[in-house]
Design a protein around this nucleic acid. Structure first.
Lengths: 230, 230
DNA sequence: CGTTGTAATATGTATGCACATATTCGGGCT
DNA sequence: AGCCCGAATATGTGCATACATATTACAACG
């Protein structure tokens, strides 16, 4: 009778939530009762419900019990694709062209994003990713050579800057932002679209403790959409 | 010496990954060894490493052991805000205006998204969300009255359509998409921007089993960005 | 020489138990 | 009435153990 896995318990709980047998806001039976009812150990129930609470479907508080969340969808997890994989997953050939590579003082937005004074020169790398020969994504990256020693000597025309950094720097955290921007002249030229076209943009920053490593702005060709299932 | 919680084990593992004591791709000690080394039970190590694997930092395979992922950041979880909460979290007053509410056959994109034939009329609800009096987000929603019985009688000028659906329908899954679009005339008028301006857009669909419930397109005023930490 | 079966191995999961911790409830005191 | 404190309660966590399962390595076999 060990047929009750935590997945089965979770599936049953999910069913009761979705069929509104346990309506939004309601308090559900406590772990011990559920364990008895479903014929398994309390730890198994705990595992099942804990995951549902992590997903935002349940609210659990000690002594107060477990309640069905009133706002069912609160979190979504996105796969942040490596561009090459993203392209290849579409059945297209990935291409990569290094456009710019120079030391320069960062622009104001990058300074803010990386919490750096404007007079420290950073390595700027601009590259274009192609999918099946067509422009796919423009990558505009600033790298802090202090946090990434050796990057000034690296050959980034073969290894992409992303791969080099993954292999050579210690990463401890960062941030990611999504937004929409109008194509400027440079973006329009490289992405083969009209200036002013609406482009999907991802900005990522990564840090090693308190030291900024890199900030990258990915601007996708028109029509790009990022999807996930709920 | 029972001070070793699973959080502590996880923190230690994270430290070793980030300091490259365990470099990308390397195989790490198995659970039993780690448990012995850190002075805790194998189940505690399992709990700690399982969560890291869920987050994409580790690859675990039976018999093959646990390896540090070579692509450190693969997933990001976003809080999908209820618009009212999103606005209020910015310290602004939320406003809501119902603009349109009518039965109509859906457009081609909505038909595709909901896998419906084009001749079934749906309830279309268009509303504008305000933040501190300024346009914030345009909500363009199609509701399948078959999957949401009673919605045709609901007063959606007080209760938002989202709240009504959360309370009255059984949800089983869905999808979400992010993208960028150029403002059309209607969007420009309501969001107080120029036609053609780059707008951030979220499209969400929800289902009850095989039946589509609703598709909603949220178009945000220029400048909106969605952020999360890694 | 490839193929297939089998044993070894690392992770995955269930269980019973004990204790920790947060939160609520209610009683008793002022 | 209001406040404080202890008891009750539900979840959170750790441990030892046992067994399940996927995967690899390797040896036997045709």
């Amino acid at each position: 009778m060990t047929a009750m896995t935590w997945q089965a318990v979770q599936a049953e709980a999910l069913r009761r939530i979705r069929t509104r047998e346990w309506p939004p806001g309601a308090r559900i039976p406590d772990e011990e009762d559920l364990a008895r009812e479903l014929g398994c150990a309390r730890t198994t129930v705990n595992r099942a419900l804990r995951d549902l609470a992590d997903a935002g479907l349940l609210d659990r508080r000690r002594r107060a019990g477990t309640h069905v969340a009133t706002t069912p969808v609160r979190k979504a997890t996105f796969e942040i694709p490596i561009i090459r994989q993203d392209v290849e997953a579409r059945g297209l050939v990935h291409g990569y062209t290094l456009l710019t590579r120079a030391m320069a003082p960062p622009d104001a937005a990058t300074c803010r994003a990386l919490a750096l004074p404007g007079d420290v020169p950073l390595l700027r790398v601009v590259a274009l990713h192609l999918a099946g020969g067509a422009p796919f994504c423009l990558e505009d990256r600033w790298i802090n050579p202090v946090a990434a020693p050796g990057v000034e000597q690296a050959d980034l025309s073969v290894t992409s800057a992303n791969e080099w950094l993954v292999r050579h720097t210690a990463f401890s955290g960062g941030g990611i932002e999504f937004g929409a921007v109008a194509a400027d002249a440079v973006q329009a030229a490289h992405l083969a679209c009209a200036p002013g076209a609406a482009l999907f943009e991802i900005v990522r920053t990564t840090w090693a403790g308190a030291d900024p490593i890199t900030a990258v702005r990915l601007t996708y060709a028109p029509g790009y959409r990022m999807k996930t299932a709920l």
